[in-house]
């Protein structure tokens, strides 16, 4: 039975060095949980961002939390390049595993099914494949002269995301963001922050049940209102454009980034 409790309790299972899966910007990025992990001083995380990331990866890179990053793209979208990501890649301070979006979905689907790999079209002849020694090309054993890429299953230690609501049984309503279910199915543990608790049983209502991740897969839930801020939670709130513009400006220098951390991450400690 999942534990519904405080944010810090929920994050206890996320330890230094673990393989942490997080979602893309429109699917519910757990930003308050991210700030809590940075405050805790987490180190050497291997971040797996399905399939892209924005502020979350940039913030964690800048704060020195990441050893490696596997994703298909990192940018601040209309606010420009992700400054700390760009600087870290140029300085070689994190291990970057460049991927392509469907490869990350497929690698999690392999774990979902408990099989060792998943085949995927595309990739052959690209430098994305050249730079991924863990990906293999085989000749389709059911065809003839048909090379195809195999992606090893990825099993994150923890999946962490933010969702609109959960009930007291730890069932989490994710709506049509089904990649959150794939992440949870594929991961050894799942931690979720939610806007609010749902009174009643999400699985008892057939309409809600179709968009619900069963508590069976969930280890901890914490109620964190506006937990995706300053990123959006679709259908609930938009991105905080002014804040993201400020981040994009400050994070271009180390001093500015330190100022941002002090003001918007560490300052919360006393609150």
């Amino acid at each position: 039975m999942p534990v519904v409790g405080s944010l810090d309790e929920a994050l206890v299972g996320i330890q230094d060095g673990c393989l942490l899966a997080v979602p893309r910007e429109v699917s519910g990025v757990p930003m308050e949980a991210t700030r809590a992990l940075i405050r805790r001083g987490i180190r050497n995380l291997r971040l797996f961002a399905l399939p892209t990331s924005s502020l979350q990866a940039d913030l964690m890179i800048g704060a020195g939390c990441l050893a490696s990053l596997e994703t298909s793209a990192v940018s601040l979208g209309e606010f420009g390049p992700a400054p700390r990501f760009t600087a870290a890649i140029k300085a070689g301070t994190i291990h970057m595993k460049d991927a392509t979006c469907p490869a990350l979905h497929a690698a999690l689907q392999a774990s979902e099914k408990g099989v060792p790999f998943m085949p995927l079209r595309g990739l052959i002849g690209s430098d994305v494949l050249r730079e991924r020694p863990d990906w293999t090309v085989i000749d389709n054993p059911l065809g003839e002269n048909d090379p195809i890429v195999l992606l090893p299953a990825i099993r994150p230690d923890v999946a962490l995301f933010h969702a609109p609501t959960a009930d007291r049984n730890g069932n989490v309503w994710i709506g049509r963001q089904r990649e959150l279910a794939t992440m949870a199915h594929a991961s050894a543990a799942t931690v979720v922050t939610v806007e609010k608790l749902h009174d009643g049983d999400l699985l008892a209502d057939p309409v809600l049940a179709a968009g619900t991740l069963p508590g069976f897969y969930v280890d901890a839930v914490a109620v964190v209102p506006r937990g995706a801020w300053p990123l959006p939670l679709p259908d609930h709130y938009d991105a905080d454009a002014a804040h993201l513009a400020e981040y994009a400006r400050l994070a271009t220098t180390l001093e500015g980034f330190a100022e941002y951390l002090e003001r918007h991450v560490y300052a919360q400690r006393a609150a």
Binding site: P51, A73, P81, I89, K90, A103, G122, S126
Partner: peptide, 18 residues
Amino acid sequence: HPTARFPGSFGSAYLYYV
């Protein structure tokens, strides 16, 4: 050791083929 870094390949390494 890149001199410039862009966001990343997104879905291109798949969609361009299919």
